[in-house]
Each structure stands twice: as C-alpha cells, then as structure tokens.
Amino acid sequence: MRMAFSSEWLKLRSVASTYYALGSAALMMLFGVGWTIYVSSLAEERGSLRAAAPEEGFLPLVQISLATIGVLAITSEHATGMIRASLTAVPSRGTLLLAKAAVVGGVTFVAAHVVLLVTYVAARLIAGDRQLGFNSTGFSDDLPLLFASGVSVTVLALVGLGLGAVTRSTAAAIVSVVAMLFVLPGIATYLPQPWNSRVASLMLPNLVPQIAGDRLSSRLGDGLLSPGVAFVALISYALVALAVGFYFLWRRDA
C-alpha cells in the first residue's frame, strides 16, 4: 500500500494538469478580492448592503477545478494505456483505487481549505468596517461553513475519481460532476410536493449549508437535514462513487 501511495503521489505531482487545476481553483482568491472591492465601493455610496460571501459565491469554481484532479487521476491513464503498467505494479485493483483516492483526497482537501481561508481572510481585511452582510459574523461562526465547503470539494474530487473509473472518459466524468452540481438540484425543484424539498435536501450543493446549520432561507421546508445527517449524506456521495468505480475497474479488462 505504501508503494502504491508513493507511486500515485509521484504521478499526480509530475503532470501539468494538476497544476492547471490548482491554478484554476486559486482564481477564487483573485475573484474574491475583486468582488469585495466592488461591493465595498457600493457600500460607501449606499452606507450598507448585503452581498454574498466570496468564499460561497465562487465555491463552484473550486469544486469543478479540483474535481478534475480526481477525474484525470484515472482517465488519463486509460487514455494513454498507462493503466496496464499501474495494474502490473499494483496487481490489486482495490489497492490501486484506494491509493489514488488517498492522494486525490489529501491534495484536494488541503488545497481547498487553503484557497477558502485565504479568500475569507482577504475579503474581511478589504471589507474592514463596511457593512457588507457577509462580514457581520465572526470566524468561529463561519468556520463550520468553511470546513463543509472544503470537504465538499474533496468529495467531488473523489466522485470524479469514481466516475472516471466508470466512464474511462474525461469529458463524460466531468459532465457528470457538473450535472450533480447544477442540473440535478434544478430538476429536484420540479418534483411534486413534498418530494421536491426532500430530494433537494439531499442534493450535493444543498448539503454544505445544512452541515453548517444554515436553514437555507426555508427553501427546503420539511426536507431539511440535521448537520450530522447532512455530513453523512455528503460523505456517502464519495463512498458510493468509489464503490461503483471499483466494481467497474474490477470487472473490466485494463
């Protein structure tokens, strides 16, 4: 297992796509600074306003950017045929997928939280004493949402890894991740009551605020989950995707 982990870590940090993905995620910090400067100038004219927190508004950018790390960790090997060499070096397909998941999960967890925290701190420093809405609470109150947001990025990266093992296609896996973030939550709102709120509460984008104890402005009604249940549901996305990915990796020839 240690050899497999070292091999996966070497592969991940030796390809340019990893740094492109990290760079795309880091754009959140620049966008967050630009957004805060913009709303701060508006606040000076109006006295105060309620603006979206940049670490929340630009979260999908980080999620999609780092999810590609999980996707490419396996689809790039299928595309180049390197998967055969990987399976020769690590005959157990379960060990191979677990090593990939550990490396992808560790890298995206650290990267996501660094980007989120830097964006959070920079936005509050720029906002200063201006009343922008998102800077009305302290760090201790915002920490659960920051943590849940970072975990959601890691979960999506692992979902991307699992879907990559299923589809063997970079495009198909990324489109599937995007659908989970933007398409399925929209479809859930068209379901009849009370199923729309119950299904919507299980959609990945809605789990992050529920973990932080946010009532989502009552949009979910009776479908609201407790923070603990929402956290389990979020982790389940990764576990199910990896389990399905392992099944397809196990059943197919390289």
Rank of each mutant, 00 (worst) to 15 (best):
A179V: 13
L181R: 03
F182H: 09
P185I: 02
G186A: 11
G186Y: 05
I187C: 08
I187Y: 10
A188R: 01
T189E: 14
Y190P: 00
L191G: 11
P192Q: 09
P192R: 10
Q193D: 13
Q193Y: 14
Q193A: 15
N196C: 09
S197F: 06
S197V: 14
V199P: 01
V199W: 04
V199F: 02
A200D: 08
S201Q: 05
L202T: 04
L202A: 12
L202Y: 02
L202P: 04
M203H: 08
M203P: 08
M203I: 12
P205R: 02
P205D: 01
N206H: 10
V208Q: 04
V208S: 03
Q210E: 06
A212C: 10
A212W: 01
A212L: 09
A212E: 09
A212P: 01
G213F: 03
D214C: 08
D214Y: 09
D214P: 07
D214W: 00
R215K: 14
R215Q: 14
L216W: 09
S217W: 15
S217H: 13
S217M: 13
S218F: 14
S218G: 13
S218K: 09
G221P: 00
G221Y: 06
D222K: 12
G223L: 07
L224M: 15
L224K: 02
L224F: 13
L225K: 06
S226G: 15
S226Y: 02
P227K: 01
P227F: 00
G228D: 09
A230S: 06
A230R: 06
F231A: 14
V232N: 05
A233D: 07
A233H: 05
L234G: 04
L234T: 03
L234W: 05
I235S: 15
S236H: 11
S236T: 15
Y237L: 09
Y237T: 07
